[in-house]
């Protein structure tokens, strides 16, 4: 079963965007556009974040992306969600 990433512990996210930088680095670029991970700050409450993972993230080195997150927001799951 193919592996992917799930943002299982979103409440832990503090918005550092290190995961986004790692994704983009693996795609040999710097920037926010086109990243397979998006980190959205709650517009009214600067303390909360939502993390969105594009299914295409399976194309990248998942282990490196998970390890870069010091808050352990991300985990490796089977593509069917298990």
């Amino acid at each position: 079963m193919a592996k992917t990433i799930k943002a299982s512990y979103q409440s832990r996210c503090f918005g550092c965007e290190m995961c986004l930088m790692e994704c983009q680095r693996q795609m040999k670029k710097a920037g926010l556009e086109g990243s397979y991970i998006r980190v959205l700050r709650d517009a009214k409450n600067g303390l909360e974040f939502r993390v969105y993972v594009d299914p295409k993230i399976r194309e990248l080195n998942i282990d490196r992306i998970i390890k870069v997150c010091v808050r352990q927001v991300l985990e490796e799951v089977d593509e069917d969600g298990a």
Binding site: F14, G15, C16, E17, G46, L47, F49, V68, V70, R71
Partner: peptide, 9 residues
């Protein structure tokens, strides 16, 4: 909440 590019929080 951390600054972008800094994992210290």
């Amino acid at each position: 909440p951390s600054c972008s590019g800094c994992p210290m929080g």
